[in-house]
Design a protein around this nucleic acid. Sequence first.
RNA 1: GAGCCCGUAGCUCAGUCGGUAGAGCACGUGACUUUUAAUCAUGGGGUCGCGGGUUCGAGUCCCGCCGGGCUCACCA
Length: 497
Amino acid sequence: MSESGASGQDDRRAKLEQLRAIGVDPWPARFAGRQPIAAILPRVEEQPSPVVRVAGRIAARRDMGAALCFFDLVDQDGRVQVMVRKDVGEQGHAIAKKLIQLGDIVGFEGTFARSKSGEPTVFATRVEFLAKSLREPPEKRHGVTDIELRYRWRHLDLMSHPEVRANFVLRSRVIQGLRELLTAKGFLEVETPMLHPIAGGAAARPFTTHHNTLDMDLYLRIAPELYLKRLLVGGFEQVFEIGRVFRNEGISPRHNPEFTMMELYWAYVDYRAVMDLTEELFVTLAQRHLKDGTTTLGERTIDLRGPYRRATYHDLVGEHAKVDPHDEAAMRRRAAELGLKEVAKAPGFKVLEALFEECVEPTLVQPTFVTHYPTAISPLSKPVPGKPDLVERFEFFMNGWELANAFSELNDPIDQLARFEAQVATKDPEAPSEVDYDYVRALENAMPPAGGLGIGIDRLCMVLSGSLSIRDTILFPLRRPQEGAPGAAPDAAAPAS
RNA sequence: GAGCCCGUAGCUCAGUCGGUAGAGCACGUGACUUUUAAUCAUGGGGUCGCGGGUUCGAGUCCCGCCGGGCUCACCA
């Protein structure tokens, strides 16, 4: 018996030794001239039959007597049947009949034509062992379906589910598409620090870390915002960054502690131009990646064809909470009716915010721009002229999820300093603990008026792929380590039997 | 952090009223020269998540813990 996690008599290490005994390298370095399966499939009717070289994972085998054997071979984008007879040579035949197991990576050369039953088939003339699998692959019909195993050992999930691979191909193309669209509009892609001395640009608890040589505590960034806006001061007029941000908060179907954000800053325009750009980006991506411009999330169908609804924050609270959003006493009564006890003693803007989250957000199923947020919850936004309590800001919602956040950027250094100081004074654990004077100093050198935008890439991919869990758009979502689990212990070092 | 639900072979899953463990796939051996969820015969494989309790007897009932899922909280 093996201690490698294999069961019963599935001792792959014994097959490995047999391969070595007949002089076959179980892990050779290359398979020259390999053709993708998807590329050969259209050639099945060619006369004379083409000679092909294909390689991939053994997904099924069907033995027919002592001489004949069929394999199903799977590579990244295709699947094809391979037939092995005695004409592969004595050693090739011995390898195929006795030493190839499900999950092994094998290369075949042969002529490509239809079998007697019409199945496109590589009639093998050469067998090359390419990589021995020392563990059994997932069950061939269902694959790994246990959710815990799927995320913990994503390679098994990807191996057995082409549709999961397709989801991540989609993600890559969405990000690439965003890059191309923004670059075509004159935006410059930049990279700013992930290690921040002060965690700013959003309200969230940061991860902390430490630099030894400088003996300095640092934070993993919660947003790139304050660095990107320094670039506007420096003279760049259109910049964007696509990258990871880190927030030390709970895990849920819509939250992962590290996630990917796209932020852009655009000089000389305000939040209205940014809203038009956001709509254009979403409509374009929906056109490219959704069959009819709509997506299905659970029971809901969401139409991304645009144009999207635009409504003000206060109007929506009035509409859905059925209360005058300018009457604080009425809102407190309404919040109490709804059982929102935690805001009883909170300031007025918190009551309004609670009503928005409770009554409005769940109704924002179809794409909606929510505009004109309270200044009190928008410390980096420029106020609406003549209305100091409101800012030129929007958030973009669908399916009740926040997908984007944007505003006319506050570039008044005096106002910005006052707002930072007010934030620090709240002692809120999610607010910065100290004022970012360096950023204020940058604003003192004059930042042009500008609009900024942040899009949550993971949630965008959820929408475009119809996923209800953010973990289906993140290859390796954060997990608690599992003690004693296969892979957690160095059991690969266990001796062969 | 709270509530509800889940954890049985490598994988996918059964397991009745509490009576000492089952199937399919995978794996070993054998048969079969056109199969394709191949088929047929046969064999091996289990710390029933972990620990405690109740009981003559626990996969099953109770308690605690670990891990996971969902909901809530948190999350501009």
